[in-house]
Structures are given as structure tokens and as C-alpha cells.
Design a protein around this nucleic acid. Structure first.
Lengths: 351, 351
DNA sequence: TTGTAAGCGTTATCAG
DNA sequence: CTGATAACGCTTACAA
């Protein structure tokens, strides 16, 4: 594989001229440009990003750190990130934390001294304990040697100094609960996402506010905290049933738990939605496959990833522009778990 | 962030000594080692991989190129790759081709001149046309400057010179078809994966051989070629029904198409499995969620990824050892789409 | 407009 | 055992 020197030799020019042709930073005469381009073509030369990186403090790599390479959620986000990355000339390195903040910090640290150009982070740190808070603050001025490394937070607003791409979790929860209210439900249980994190707390908050706005009382014993997984939804539902409280509908904080909820209800002999209705958040394709199909609030997953990558490129261009939070829209999807009129077609596309 | 020079200054030694302490390539006296380690600790020094990469021709980065960041298939594979990569000290860069060989070559080319240490490739090139064949050959001696870049092929045997991690596709198809035969089916249709690729061709071959071994005649008009996607399975099934041939079972080359097949059959008023039984290959979690649940042949997806990464590290250590193909085992999973006694529980774990 | 040369952070060679 | 120094491939002042 050819290097810049080979090109220079072949074209009979100096290496700086080759560099200038490639980077268009300084003007080069047409003749030389021509000769250089021919040499580049002939030798199939492409710049070596390692050499360039050393000099220019840029690697054209961004790191993506997520809790899990989750089956239903992560791929679409990664597609968005990758597509935008490809467009703007960045390669994507991926890291999984398993929800372990220590491992997350390890990955961040690794990326920082890799001279990566930016980080997209779906963090599990929550600013509750002091060490997490220090860690989050450290991200703001996260720097490699002399350059700051921009961080874009995915799905939660980490720090007033960190860009983020999110959805309005409170609103999404409100959309879900409102739908149940409109169906005539007066007693609605909630299978929550982990409450020590923003997503869980905000969706709970949206649930509570929407109930109260409708003149209903919030009842903590109708809430059970899961961990996003389908099985936790199943377990929460079983626990709620054991409490023997009255409710006719369940709002699950995500579709995966919603599916677990449906399974639990069916296993206990309830009809869905006649006895108890269920709605989730995410609008993942499996929700269309179960019977009854699960109503949900759509999250624009691909868009979330794309915008995160886009925000990162903007931040790299203008490190000092004011901090930016992009909030994407959500949308109600009515299926059979809340309404006999809901859609019941399997999603056979895009998976 | 501190560099090697800062450490050297702080410890009062030369940079080579610092390097020797870090890499343990040459002995260093205990006193100096101590001083250096203290300085490293104090400054939170970690080597800069860009500088190291330039010198040592190693980046500790591995590129993974796949047709799609597929929802059901890719995440588990990536988990396996990432886990093994983390263990052996490699970061994972991911690239999606959308099944476009031109884009695939673009990514490969990019990785080659990135001085990446290795490539895991799920290729869509098929050695049919001459340009593909040349491209595949070029992977064998794929080199960046002076060093060969090892390639591990995922899911298909690309070239006699390229390591691969695969499953025995013929055998997996045989397992599926045999199961149908054991259920008493004598006329079995096949919704095939793209036949110009190994996976599709081998699964078709396994289908044909198993039929013939059972004394049944292979009938090409019972075969319809899909493209892996659920919707293509749906369309194929519709087309097979229109041909008005008799069959009582369908072997779909993957679960996604199998789910499409079930949907088509239900839409046309057939009962599954009473009128027509269906089996797939993959054992993805959505297959447990549909009604009836889809029988399948399990593929060890995580293991596929883990072994690919492992193979790569072995190859990097010993570039000249004989080429290695790892074939992983598959296993029949009986659900309701082929047998009333099959399992019908939703998979609520690991997604 | 073009070329020369310094230097990015590290490793490796070789002389002390 | 230790340290000076030359690479690695590239960008970028600065000199011509």
C-alpha cells in the first residue's frame, strides 16, 4: 500500500504538495495537481489516518457507549449513527457496558486517551451519588491532551454542559396514559422503568401528572418498578396482581415490559384488553407480533442516533457554541391491547 | 492528559525507560521502575494508541463489516465479538453495507488503509462474477503497508485462504426437514434464502438431499426464493399458494421468513400446523412470540461472534498457521408451528 | 506556488 | 541497565 512519499516521488513533487492537493488547504497549480492526482490514482493512495491523527489531533473515529447491544432498541439507533457517521466521514467504535457504571467509565477513559474525536454516550450514571456526579462533570471538560472531546448524551440530559438527544419522556408517558383515560379507564397501574434514572422517573412523573390532571388520585401501590426487560414486566405484573388492588389498565414504561405484562395477564386468565388493557412505550416490532398486539408510543430510534451523530459533528466544528438539546417527537400507536379497533397487523418490514 | 515525556520528566528518567517499564520489553532496575510507576500513577498516564500505532503498526482496532445491523441477528453476534474483543484488548468498529458489495469493498478498503489489525466480514460477495472473485482473492493478501491484515469470514466460507466461523448449513436444513418428515409430512415446500449465496444454496441443498434420502422427489416448483426478510417470506408463501401445488409443510430458510410464511397462511385461512406446518432456522426470540410459535433450528449467534474474534486474535499471533474453519453446532427447537406438543412459552429473557 | 523541515507520541536500535 | 536518537506518515509553518 502506497504512502504519501511514493505519491510524491511518482508525481515528481514534494510531499507537502501532495498533502495540499489532498486537503485543499493551499492552492496548487493545475499542472501539479493533475500529476499528483494521476499518481494518487495509479497507486491507489489513500491517506493513513494514523499518521494524520498523530499530527492533526483527529482520528475521525467516534465512540458509542451503550448499556446493551439490545435486540430491539440499539440496532436502529446504531443505524442512524452509522449512516450519519458515514456521511460525515466518521467511523463508529462501539462499547457495551452491561449497565455497569464502572465499565462505562473504563470505556470513556479508554476513548479519551485514544484521541477519539467524540463520544455518544447512553449513560447509566445518574448523578445521585457523588462519584457519579464527579464522573459526569468530568465528561464536560473531557479532554485528550489539548483538545476537548465532545460528548453527546443519548436518551437523557446528563449535565447542563452536555449536548443531548432525547424524547420528552413525561409527554410520552402522558400520551400513553391519556389514551387509557380516553378508553374510559379510571384505575391504571404502572410498571415503571428503573426510577433512579431519568427515563424511569420522568415517565412515572408523566403518569402521575396525567392522572392528577384527570382528577384521579395517584396511588403508589399501583406502581411496580421493573428493569426494562420483558421478564421484569412479567414479574411486576404478577406482583401487582398479588396486591389485590383494583385496576383495569396497565401503563408499562417500555414495550419489552409491556409484553411481559401481557404474558402475565394471560397466564393468570385475564383477557386483554377486555379485563385489563396494556400500553407500552417504544413501538418495537415485537409488539406487533404478540397476541393481542401491544399499543405503544413510538420513539424515533433511527432519528435519535442520526441526530446524536449530527450534533457531534456540529459540536466538533464549533466547540464553544451554546449547549444544545434536541427533543424528538413521539406518537401514539393504537393496537389491540387497548382497543378492539386497534391495528393487528404484524410488522413484517425493516427487521 | 499526560504524555510519555511528562512521565519521564517527573520520574527523572528518559522516555525509553518509561516505555520499557510500560511494555516490559527490556529489564528496568527496581528503583527506576518504582519511580516511573509512581509518575504514571500521579499523572494518570496511559499510552497514546495513535502514537503507538504509527510506530508499531498496530491499532488494537478490529473492523466488523456486516450487511445489516439486523434487529434479531446482529446484536447477539456483536455481543460475542465485543466480549472477546474486550477480553483480548481490541476495540470494535462497525460498518453496515446494506448488502451492497460496492459499499462493502469501500469499507474494506477504508479499514485496510486505517491500519486496522483485523477484519471480521459477513460478506455479500459470492465469487460468481469475476470482479467479486478478484475482490475476495484480494482479501487473502490484504495488507496495509507491510503487514497482512487478517480477515475472518462470518457465516460463509469465502476462500480457501480465509479463516471462517460458520454453521453447517446443509445439516441445519437437514435437521429442519427431517423434523417435518418425522411429523409425517410427505410434501414439503421451501422458502429459500437468496440462492446466489452459500447460505441459501446450502440450505436448499440440505433440503433436497434430505428429501431424496427419504425417498421423496425434489420438486423445484415447491421452492420460492426470498431475501431473508419477513415480508419476502410472506410474498413467497402467497406465490407458492397460487401455484396450487399440494404441500403440507413449509421449510423456511430463516425464522424471519418463517414468520412471514405463518402470517400468509393465517391470512389465507389455513390452520398452522393442522393444515400446513412451518419451520425456520435461527431460533430468534420473535419466533416465540407469534401465534402459533415457530419451530426452528437454533444457531449459536453469540458464539459465532465470540469465536470469530477469537480466531482473529489467534491469526494475528500466528499469521502463517494453517487456515482454520470453525463449524458450530445447531439444535432443533420444536414449537407449535409443527407440533401441538411443541413449546409455547414466550421468550422473555435476553432481549 | 512550491519545497524544506519540524514535530505529533511512541517504539526500537544502538551506543554508553 | 539506561539514554539519545532515528524512525513511523502526515500536516503545517516558514523559507525560497
Amino acid at each position: 500500500m502506497a504512502g504519501i512519499k511514493d505519491v510524491a516521488k511518482k508525481a515528481g513533487v514534494s510531499i507537502s504538495t501532495v498533502s495540499n492537493v489532498m486537503n485543499e488547504k493551499k492552492p496548487v497549480s493545475p499542472e501539479l495537481r493533475q500529476r499528483v492526482n494521476e499518481a494518487i490514482e495509479a497507486l491507489q493512495y489513500e491517506v493513513n489516518p494514523v499518521g494524520r491523527g498523530l499530527k492533526s489531533n483527529k482520528t475521525n473515529q467516534v465512540g458509542v457507549i451503550v448499556p446493551s447491544f439490545n435486540q430491539v432498541y440499539f440496532p436502529a439507533i446504531l443505524q442512524g449513527i452509522h449512516e450519519a457517521g458515514f456521511k460525515f466521514g466518521y467511523a463508529i467504535s462501539v462499547f457495551e457496558t452491561g449497565g455497569d457504571v464502572e465499565r462505562e467509565r473504563q470505556h470513556v477513559r479508554f476513548l479519551q486517551h485514544s484521541w477519539i474525536d467524540g463520544i455518544i454516550l447512553a449513560s447509566y450514571a445518574n448523578g445521585e451519588n457523588i462519584s457519579d456526579r464527579k464522573y459526569i462533570r468530568s465528561l464536560v471538560n473531557s479532554s485528550s491532551r489539548k483538545k476537548k472531546i465532545p460528548v453527546v448524551s443519548l436518551e437523557n440530559v446528563l449535565d447542563p454542559g452536555i449536548d443531548a438527544v432525547v424524547i420528552d419522556n413525561k409527554k410520552a408517558a402522558g400520551i400513553a396514559v391519556n389514551h387509557l383515560l380516553e378508553q374510559g379507564h379510571k384505575a391504571i397501574a404502572h410498571v415503571a422503568a428503573p426510577l433512579r434514572f431519568q427515563i424511569g422517573a420522568l415517565r412515572l412523573e408523566g403518569y402521575r401528572e396525567t392522572l392528577e390532571k384527570a382528577g384521579l388520585k395517584f396511588d403508589g401501590s399501583l406502581v411496580c418498578e421493573g428493569n426494562y426487560s420483558p421478564i421484569s414486566g412479567y414479574q411486576c405484573m404478577m406482583e401487582l396482581l398479588e396486591r389485590e388492588k383494583h385496576f383495569t389498565a396497565v401503563f408499562a414504561a417500555n414495550d419489552q415490559m409491556g409484553i411481559g405484562v401481557i404474558r402475565a395477564l394471560l397466564d393468570r386468565g385475564y383477557r386483554v384488553p377486555e379485563d385489563i388493557a396494556v400500553i407500552g412505550i417504544d413501538n418495537n416490532f415485537p409488539s406487533t407480533l404478540v397476541t393481542p398486539s401491544l399499543s405503544s408510543v413510538n420513539l424515533p430510534k433511527y432519528e435519535l442516533g442520526y441526530q446524536a451523530m449530527y450534533l457531534l459533528t456540529e459540536r466538533m466544528k464549533e466547540p464553544d457554541k451554546p449547549r444544545c438539546v434536541i427533543t424528538l417527537d413521539t406518537e401514539l400507536i393504537v393496537r389491540r391491547s387497548t382497543s378492539k379497533e386497534g391495528s393487528d397487523t404484524w410488522n413484517l418490514l425493516n427487521w
